[in-house]
């Protein structure tokens, strides 16, 4: 239990460090950084490396935005394995990322509840 928390901390922290390096050293904007990380997660899943990382680090791998690229690719690949090339397309439409649906839903609710103020960084 405790070792799971520690690995989640370390792996999650390291992924954030990669993001910080993109932002500071390569001078990318946050939007560019996040997009790059999503692509990175997707490519890693293409090599079959992201699922082992989730097995190893749990939330340390599922909470960073890289897991979004992974889940999309994973859905597409799972369908492609069953139905061939057509599956790549149908798989893309079948997968939903809970992160996006949650962000849309809670975004709408948040806009309803909270008053306008400077909330962005």
């Amino acid at each position: 239990m405790i070792s799971s928390l520690v690995t989640a901390f370390i792996v999650g922290g390291l992924i954030c460090v990669i993001g910080q390096i993109f932002m500071d050293v390569f001078k990318l904007t946050p939007a560019h950084t996040l997009s790059t990380l999503v692509v990175l997660g997707s490519v890693l899943d293409g090599f079959g490396l992201y699922e082992p990382l989730i097995d190893f680090a749990g939330a340390g791998a599922t909470v960073p935005i890289t897991s979004f690229g992974n889940s999309l690719t994973h859905g597409a690949l799972a369908e492609a394995e069953k139905h061939g090339l057509i599956g790549v397309l149908t798989g893309m439409f079948e997968v939903t990322s809970s992160g996006i649906s949650a962000a849309i839903l809670f975004g709408a609710i948040g806009a309803f509840i909270f008053h306008k103020r400077k909330t962005m960084y």
Binding site: G12, G13, I15, C16, V17, I18, G19, Q20, F22, M23, P30, T33, L34, L37, V63, P64, I65, T66, S67, F68, G99, A102, A103, I104, F106, G107, G110, A111, T119, M120, Y121
Partner: peptide, 15 residues
């Protein structure tokens, strides 16, 4: 980036 990279950062941007 420690607050931007986790999904909470994505949620923060949308919300």
């Amino acid at each position: 980036a420690g607050s931007a990279v986790p999904v909470t950062g994505f949620g923060n941007a949308v919300i």
